[in-house]
Amino acid sequence: MTLTDLGVLYGIGGVASAALVRRFTGKPRRESATSFLLSLLLWPLWLPIALASRKPSSLVGARLSSDTEVALLEAHAAVRGTPLEPLLPRQALDRILSELARAGERHAELSELLARRHFDPKLAEARVARLTRDGAPARTLSSARLHLDNVERLAALRARDQRTFEELAELVLALRAQLVLAKFSESSASDVQGIVGEVWARIDVLGTTLEPASAGAYMAGPAAFSDLAESQAE
C-alpha cells in the first residue's frame, strides 16, 4: 500500500463520518456546514466531539452514572463469594443500577429540556420583569409567573439530581475502597454498613420529586437548600 491508498481510506472514513454526524446532529444551517466540513476532513478528531456534544448538558450525569456503575460492579466483585457479600448482594446491586439508570434517563431528559430557549430560567425571569414594567394585564403576568415557577422547579430538580449523582459517585468510590479493605484486612464491616446506608439514602433522593418550597430554596443556592432539607428532616 502507498500513502495514496491510506489517503483514499481516510477519505472513505471521512464520507462515512460526515453521514453519521449529519444523521445524529440536528443543527442550524451555518453550524451544520462547519460540522459537515470538519467531519469530512478531520473526522478522527471531530467525530468523538460531534457525538459527545449531541446532548451536551446531559453528559455530565451520564458520565457520573457510568463511572458509578463501574465502581459499584467492582465493589460487588470484590466481595462476591466472601462473608462480606451480604453487604452488597447481587439483588441490591441490580436494584441500585436500575434506579441509577432510571434517574440518569430523567436527568438527561431534564437537561435536554432546560437547554431549550423557552425553558431558560433567566429568560423567563426577564420576561416577567418586562411584563411587570410594561404593565401587562394581570392574566398574562400570572401565566408568565407560573411558567417561571415551573421552570425554576425543573432547574432545581436537575441541580439536585446532579448534586446527588456527584455525592453518590464519591460514596460508591469510598464503598469500593472500604469493601476491598475489609476483605483484605478482615476488619469490621460496620463502616461499610454506614456507607451502604448513605448510598441507599441518595438512591431514594433520586427517586423523589421536588416540593415547591425546596425548589425555591435550591434556586437560592445549595446552602439554603441544605438548611431546608435539614429542617424537613428534623
Binding site: L42, W46, I49, A52, S53, P56, S57, L59, V60, R63
Partner: peptide, 14 residues
C-alpha cells in the same frame, strides 16, 4: 475531562 460541550473549545483550539 468534564465534557461540558467540547465544541467551542475544539473550534477555538483548532
Amino acid at each position: 475531562a468534564a465534557d461540558e460541550d467540547p465544541r467551542a473549545l475544539f473550534l477555538a483550539s483548532l
